[in-house]
Design a binder for these strands. Structure first.
Lengths: 189, 189
DNA sequence: TGTACATCAGTGAACGCGCGTTCACTGATGTAC
DNA sequence: TGTACATCAGTGAACGCGCGTTCACTGATGTAC
C-alpha cells in the first residue's frame, strides 16, 4: 500500500471508485450514476474514471463481475446438499449487496460478452446448480431443471421484492433472510 | 374520436405517448427514455409530453398506474381459490407487459405518493391476497402471511428472471407461463 | 343559424446544465545499469 | 548510491450534444346566447 494522502497518485483509485459507485447505486439507482459525479465523490478529476473503466458500461460490468465473485464467496463453504441454507445465503447476499445485485441482473447496464463477467457468472451459477442436484431425487421431484428453477425463482423473487421495498411494512422488524429460511420450510416440509 | 390525421389537435395524444413510452422501455429500459425522444416518436413537438404528464416522473407514474390496472384486469374473473392459476396469470401478465412490470416495481422511477397509483396498487394487491386466504388453512400451513409471501416470491422471481433473460436458454421454446404452472404443481403436490 | 368568448391542446424558440469523451500534459514510480 | 529512462496514473481545458423546463404564442374545439 504505497500511497498516503495528498499524493499525486491515488494508490487504489479503482477500488475507491467501485466503492463510491456502489454507494451511489444503492442510494439512487444505477440510472443516476454519472462518471463525473463519481469522480467528484472520489475527489479526483473527472477524466480519471475513464482511465480505469473505459466508459460507463465498463464500470457497471466491473461491478457485476465483482458481484458474482461476492456471491460465489458467500456460497462457498456451505453444505452443498442443504438447499434451504443455500437459498438463505442467496437472499442474505442480495440484502447485503443491493447495488451489486441490481446491476448483476440488469443486462442493459453491462457488457454481456465480457469474458471476466461471463466467468464470474458461470462460476456462481455452478455453485447454485450443485446445490439442487445434490438434493435426493425423491425430495425434488422427477425434473431437476424444474426444481432448480423453482428454488431460484423463490429466492430471487423474495430478494427482489425485499430490495424494491415491497416487504418493508410486513417484515420491517425481522431478519429477512431468516424469515426466508423459515418460509422455505413451509414449502419443503 | 374527433381527430383525423393532419389536424392541429392530435385527439388522443396521451394514449399515443403512453404506448410509445412503453415500447421504448421494452426495447432499451426505462433509463434510456427521454421526453424529447418520446415526442419525436409520437410526431409532436418536444414540449407536448409535459402538457400531459408534467415531467418524466409523471410519465412513469402513469405507466405504473396503468400497469396495476392491467394486472387487476388480468386477475379479475379467475377463480380466487385457485392459487396456482393466479400465479400463472401473474407471470403471464409480466411477460405480456414487460415494460409496465419493470416500472411498477422500480420505486425510484415513480411518484410513490401519487393517489391514483396507490389506489391501483392496493386494488391489485387485494386481488392477489384474496387468492391466498381462500386456500384452506390445512394446505397452506399455519401462517397465512408467510404463505402469501412464498407464493408471491415464487411468481415474482420467475417473472423477473424471465424478463431479465435468465431463462432464455433452458426455456426458449416453451410457453413460460404454462411451464410456471407445471412448476407450482411440483411444489404444492 | 350565427356570433362571441372561454378553454384546451400543441408549437417552437430559448435558456442553462451536466454529461461523455478527447487530448496534450505532468507528476510519480519502478527498473536498468 | 546515483542517474537515466520508460511506464503508469491522474490533470484540466475543451468539444459538442441532448436534455428538461419555461414561455408567449396560435390553432382548434365547445358552449352560451
Amino acid at each position: 500500500m504505497p500511497a498516503g494522502s495528498g499524493t499525486y497518485h491515488h494508490g487504489d483509485l479503482r477500488r475507491t471508485l467501485l466503492a463510491a459507485a456502489v454507494e451511489m447505486i444503492a442510494e439512487h439507482g444505477p440510472a443516476q450514476v454519472s462518471l463525473r459525479d463519481l469522480a467528484r465523490r472520489a475527489g479526483v478529476s473527472h477524466a480519471a474514471p475513464t482511465h480505469h473503466f473505459k466508459d460507463k458500461t465498463g464500470l457497471f460490468t466491473a461491478i457485476a463481475t465483482e458481484g458474482y465473485q461476492l456471491l460465489s464467496d458467500s456460497l462457498t463453504g456451505a453444505d452443498p446438499s442443504d438447499l434451504r441454507n443455500m437459498g438463505r445465503r442467496y437472499v442474505a447476499f442480495a440484502l447485503a449487496h443491493p447495488a451489486h445485485f441490481t446491476v448483476m441482473f440488469d443486462r442493459s447496464l453491462v457488457r454481456n460478452d465480457d469474458p471476466e463477467l461471463a466467468a464470474a457468472t458461470s462460476h456462481a451459477g455452478s455453485l447454485l446448480r450443485a446445490a439442487v442436484t445434490d438434493v435426493p431425487p425423491g425430495r425434488r421431484g422427477p425434473d431437476a431443471d424444474m426444481a432448480e428453477l423453482a428454488a431460484w425463482s423463490l429466492a430471487h423473487g423474495f430478494a427482489t421484492l425485499a430490495l424494491n421495498g415491497n416487504l418493508d411494512h410486513p417484515l420491517a422488524h425481522r431478519n429477512k433472510s431468516d424469515y426466508f429460511y423459515a418460509l422455505t420450510e413451509l414449502l419443503f416440509a
